[in-house]
Design a protein around this nucleic acid. Structure first.
Lengths: 146, 146
DNA sequence: CTTAACTGTAAGAATTATGATTACAGTACA
DNA sequence: TGTACTGTAATCATAATTCTTACAGTTAAG
């Protein structure tokens, strides 16, 4: 899996952190620690899925277009990275005479697909807001420990 | 995630498919479609975790050292690939003044760790034998459809 | 109506992760 | 003692991921 899901969650949490404000791809990129082109690509996907609104031109950028208490990480994961949990490489060879070699691919594929369902079941429990809350709590803990 | 978990499951299913027989790294590699050195590396880990027994020298190779009905894919996953579900790249920067940038890493790390728990919860339901059964069933279906 | 600050998109380079190859020491059987 | 194995590591090749650069399209401001 690449990091687009991580960046999407980070960007949405950031937008939820500054409600009502536009953030440019430049600003988000600095916060995320990547480049503006990558942010624009990811925000484009989030826009197509209704999570953010875009404004082009001077003073433009991105703004949250959903309720951060309602949108779960599962929805974000599905938009960005569905099916990317399984490795690219496949074992076995369908043309082999051996049952195991011939059929392992289908079986593992099914297993990875179902395991992903369990994975996203957890993500359904988390919202953009809950991530933001964790971020804010996380700081309190740091301050206590210092 | 790389494919070591996939290869481990494939190799163990293969050994379960030929009970009582030794399989060399060469033979397993052909079945899996990779090279013997990679198989030996993976089987070394499986040996250290008690899943297989090794025999060096002439006529040597690998043989199952566990009950395929008892060993779950979760145990195999933990041995081979625990913690590899999350992407390598991290967003944010702990030195940033912005809360979100500074703390997102810890929060996402925690989320990926807990999501992996759900993932492995599914793998606990599958055993080496159940994978082998799926493989054998999978062939029946193919034959019916042809 | 022109300039400046944005997004949208894509191509290509750079980097990193993954997998393959090769090599060789160690072991065991015949 | 030779042959067929495992164990392990170093190096090379390939593929995935990320970064850079570029430029067309859009909008606000002057």
């Amino acid at each position: 899996m690449n990091s687009e899901f991580t960046i999407a969650v980070h960007s949405l949490a950031l937008l939820a952190h500054i409600p009502g404000h536009m953030a440019s791809s430049e600003l988000i990129a600095q916060n995320v620690c990547t480049n503006p082109a990558r942010i624009r690509k990811i925000m484009g996907i989030l826009r197509k899925n209704g999570f953010v609104k875009t404004k082009e031109g001077v003073g433009g950028g991105y703004i949250l277009a959903c309720d951060p208490h309602a949108v779960t990480l599962a929805e974000i994961y599905h938009s960005m990275s569905k099916g990317t949990l399984k490795p690219h490489w496949c074992s076995g060879d369908p043309k082999e005479a051996c049952l195991v070699s011939a059929n392992i691919h289908n079986v593992m594929d099914q297993i990875f697909t179902e395991a992903e369902l369990y994975y996203t079941k957890y993500l359904e429990q988390l919202t953009i807001q809950s991530v933001l809350d964790k971020i804010r709590q996380s700081t309190c803990q740091d301050q206590v420990s210092e």
